[in-house]
Amino acid sequence: MRSAEAFPNLEKLDIGWFSSLALPPLSTSLKKLKKLKCGSLNLASLSSKLETLTDLTVHFTNTCKCITVETLESLANLKKLEIWEADERSLPEEGMRALKSLTSLSVNYCRKLMGGLPQGWLRHLTALEELDIFQCDGVVELPDEVRYLKFLAKVELKSLPKMVYLLKALQHLSSSLQCLFLSTLCEQSSLPEWLGDFTSLEELTISECPKVTSLPTRIRGMTNLQFMLVMECPELERRCEREIGEDWHNIQHIPHLVPDGDFDDEFRTEYDKQYNEYEDPNMCFDVPQDTPKTSEDHSQYYNRVFGNRRDKLKVEKIKMKKVPLQISQFQ
């Protein structure tokens, strides 16, 4: 096969995580490639000519833990980057400077990261609008570099067992942040009063954060807040109870308020089943065919699971972009 001209019109390529798969020299023919999912070793074999790429998902392997500066510099048009099992060496700062068009960054299962995201990962992503961090066990706080992300509108922080100081860095985003999703932050104990300064916030989800026991009183001034979901936070749920909870008078202005008790048993059973099955990526052989395996699937999955209950919950106008859990992509 003449590999150099094999796929001149190819726009999407999904190699998966097969790091031992030997690829022919395709780079000269991938002139229209926009979306790529592969292992880090495969990315290296495709050379650095990926100027047309806008969507990249990379799983870092033990044999290749770093994307070269040259490859990152060739990704000037990249808008979405999703990484799995990276460490502090995986994205050199010199190369990250080139990602001026990046609007979405998702960091998953990076369990070797200690303290926070490495210096230089965020500072230069000045167009970033969405940041998603999932199952990074050593991450304690967000880096101060978040202050440079003037367009950051959506932050999702999920399954970060050591995170304590998440909102310290977010304080600089009070005029841009629209959606804040907090899930399974076991050490997060409170939400600061200055959260009320987030005048642009429209959606707030607090799920499985048992130490968060109350809301800041200034939340009553967040007039743009349209949707709040409280789930698996026993004391906070009690305080948000309609009419009688201590925090009810601070949140009664929110049009779509969904305390945990409003979920019916069918939804809770399905949510718990899905969430518990996918905490460990090694359990991929149990993944049902209808569960989301990529971020594009999340919206459809959320609507299927949650949509049938909208009449009961009186949240017909809620348009969530992602299901409130992250499913392993290891297949």
Rank of each mutant, 00 (worst) to 15 (best):
R2F: 15
R2I: 10
E5S: 08
A6F: 10
E11D: 10
K12S: 12
I15W: 07
F18I: 14
A22W: 15
P24C: 15
L26M: 15
C38W: 14
G39L: 08
L43F: 04
L50F: 05
E51R: 07
L56G: 13
F60A: 06
C64Q: 12
I67V: 15
T68L: 06
T68R: 07
V69N: 15
V69K: 15
L72Y: 12
L75I: 11
K79Q: 11
E82N: 07
E82S: 15
R89C: 14
L91R: 06
E93P: 10
G95R: 02
R97N: 15
S106Q: 12
S106G: 08
S106Y: 10
V107W: 02
M114H: 12
P118C: 03
G120W: 12
F134K: 01
Q135A: 02
Q135P: 02
Q135T: 02
Q135S: 02
E141T: 01
D144P: 00
L149H: 07
A153T: 01
E156R: 02
L157R: 02
K158A: 00
M163G: 00
M163W: 01
K168F: 00
L170S: 00
L177D: 11
Q178I: 09
C179Q: 08
Q188F: 11
S189K: 05
S190P: 04
D197A: 11
D197G: 04
F198D: 11
F198A: 05
T199S: 10
T199Q: 11
E203V: 05
S207C: 15
S207E: 04
E208Y: 11
T213S: 06
L215P: 10
T217W: 14
I219W: 10
R220L: 12
M228D: 00
V230E: 07
M231G: 03
L236W: 00
R239H: 07
R239M: 01
R242N: 06
N250V: 09
I251L: 03
H253S: 04
I254C: 04
P255E: 09
H256Y: 12
D264L: 01
D265H: 01
F267V: 12
F267A: 08
Q274D: 05
E279Y: 07
E279W: 07
D280Y: 07
D280H: 05
P281D: 04
E296C: 13
S299G: 02
Q300C: 02
R304V: 11
R310L: 14
K312S: 13
K312A: 08
K314Y: 13
K314R: 14
E316M: 09
I318L: 10
K321W: 14
K321I: 00
P324D: 04
Q329H: 08
F330G: 05
Q331S: 06
